[in-house]
């Protein structure tokens, strides 16, 4: 069976990360159906992975190692603390408005929307600050946003694990404009837990959204958000 009659030939640019957003979305869809292009992408990606070896090699600054491991140990402490039974408050709210998203979203059938309000104030020993985060979900779920000096994290629990070909994608929305895609794609564990780093530059970002998208992500949301975190 021929699968190549409409191949766009974008495997090299895809492997190099050089496709524009619209092309990336189209080629990602194409990859799901074309084993020839998938094999080509795998072959080129293996090459791309060795390109860093061609650059001049430097010793990583000693302070960098200390900073990384301090962050890791602080996170490990936070995880251990989080493993204890949580004390959270669940408050049902109305469905949020979704300015900037496709009109199709608004008309889509909506399941029960739950809002988990997690309000934790204070600084941990590692300097990590838990701010008030409001999470919306189309199914039972929970989560929180954790901000620290060096990075920002989204932690979710009890979301639906996604099957092959699907991924959760994180979007950032500012006061004006439509949600912007990020490179943050993730899935959750069998128990529905997940933790991802958010881009560090959240200045001006008012909402962090998560949608279910095709593997590889998309340039524009194609489904309703399952989570919305209001930062402001």
């Amino acid at each position: 069976m021929s699968e190549t009659f409409s191949c766009p030939g974008d495997a090299p640019a895809y492997a190099l990360g050089a496709l524009d957003d619209a092309e990336l979305a189209a080629f990602t869809r194409h990859l799901r159906a074309c084993s020839v292009c998938r094999e080509e992408v795998e072959s080129f990606e293996a090459l791309v992975h060795v390109l860093p070896m061609s650059v001049p090699q430097y010793q990583a600054p000693r302070g960098l190692r200390r900073a990384v491991m301090a962050e890791v140990r602080a996170d490990a402490r936070t995880r251990r603390a989080a493993a204890r039974p949580p004390v959270t408050a669940r408050t049902p709210l109305t469905r949020p408005s979704l300015p900037g998203f496709r009109a199709g979203w608004v008309g889509a059938a909506v399941a029960v929307v739950l809002v988990l309000a997690v309000i934790t104030v204070g600084l941990t020993a590692g300097g990590t600050r838990h701010i008030g985060a409001r999470m919306y979900a189309a199914s039972v779920g929970s989560g929180e946003v954790i901000l620290s000096r060096s990075d920002n994290q989204l932690v979710v629990h009890h979301l639906a694990p996604l099957g092959p070909g699907r991924t959760y994608e994180v979007w950032l929305k500012r006061a004006t404009g439509s949600p912007q895609p990020t490179s943050v794609l993730f899935n959750v564990s069998a128990s529905g837990d997940g933790a991802v780093d958010l881009p560090s530059g959240l200045g001006g970002v008012t909402e962090v959204m998560v949608t279910q998208e095709p593997a590889g992500g998309t340039a524009r949301p194609t489904s309703q958000p399952v989570l919305i975190t209001h930062l402001s």
């Binding site: 960098l64 900073a67 990384v68 962050e71 890791v72 996170d75 060096s150 990075d151 780093d197």
Partner: peptide, 11 residues
Amino acid sequence: VQEAFTSLWRS
């Protein structure tokens, strides 16, 4: 690099 490694730790 710090962002990348802390992200890897968490993932």
